[in-house]
């Protein structure tokens, strides 16, 4: 009870009192092929603690490029990324401690056992022994991966690898959870569990930022949505706000199609 009250208080402080954004993108730009192709063009976003933020866009719109610039995998040509107030490219170690990242393809160490991979990631985030054990067991149970954790990752299916990456990303309970197309390859039960975890994190005052093609997921789950097309944010707001701006107001799918086709 006391814990819940304190969590609500944190959310109150940060939200109502207009506290610090957990993720802030400031005029972020990235070009490819000698500046001919603008993959991300002057993108700015402010995402508050406790928010589930959906990042939508057609293929090649700049979603993954933006995400890679946030997590430190792709250096922006221009602009700034702040995570919990920390400049992610000036002070990368401190920024990375705040977040965890789940990529769209789980390219991980095939020759390690699942448990060895989880311990490796936990060591890098300096998660204490007692806590890591409890968290590993909890998430392995949720994603039904306990039976395979002693096996070499090379023997896992795509979905199992995806689950392992998800678990490893949750081990240090990051303030900012960033996922690139997280539902791809997951079975329906795991997909459901992941959505539950996202909601729970948001209730705890932590932030989830994810890109997706599955519009229904975004519609049901997200507090706010941004639609990116040809590197530019073309719509940003809650579902209600997006509806009010679009001519077709029925579903996110229709809004999405209308906006991206008009561009």
């Amino acid at each position: 009870m006391l814990k819940n009250i304190s969590v609500c208080y944190i959310i109150y402080i940060t939200y109502i009192k207009g506290g610090m954004d957990l993720l802030k993108l400031q005029n972020l730009s990235k070009t490819y092929s000698k500046g001919e192709v603008k993959a991300v063009d002057n993108v700015s976003l402010d995402i508050k603690p406790g928010e589930i933020f959906g990042f939508l866009g057609p293929n090649g719109a700049g979603k993954t490029t933006t995400i890679k610039m946030i997590v430190g995998l792709l250096k922006p040509d221009d602009g700034k990324v702040y995570i919990n107030g920390i400049d992610a490219w000036e002070n990368p170690l401190e920024a990375k401690k705040q977040l965890s990242f789940v990529p769209d393809t789980p390219e991980i160490y095939d020759k390690l056992k699942g448990i060895e991979y989880l311990n490796f990631i936990a060591d890098m985030y300096e998660v204490p022994r007692e806590i890591r054990r409890e968290r590993m067991e909890k998430y392995l149970e949720i994603f039904n991966l306990k039976h395979a954790i002693g096996d070499i990752i090379g023997s896992y299916s795509h979905g199992m690898k995806q689950k392992l990456v998800l678990i490893s990303a949750l081990i240090h309970e990051p303030n900012l959870f960033i996922l690139d197309e997280p539902m791809v390859g997951l079975d329906p039960k795991s997909s459901f569990q992941l959505k539950e975890i996202m909601r729970k994190r948001c209730h705890e005052g932590k932030t989830v930022f994810f890109s997706t093609h599955v519009l229904e997921v975004a519609e049901k789950l997200c507090d706010r949505i941004a639609i990116i097309n040809k590197g530019k944010i073309i719509a940003l707001g809650t579902m209600e706000e997006l509806r009010s701006h679009a001519e077709e107001r029925e579903s996110l799918e229709k809004i999405f199609l209308e906006l991206t086709e008009n561009e």
Binding site: I115, F120, A122, D123, M124, R129, E130, R132, G150
Partner: peptide, 11 residues
């Protein structure tokens, strides 16, 4: 096995 922990460089 769930609680093997090492400093980053050893891991």
């Amino acid at each position: 096995d769930y609680s093997k922990s090492y400093p980053a460089f050893i891991a």
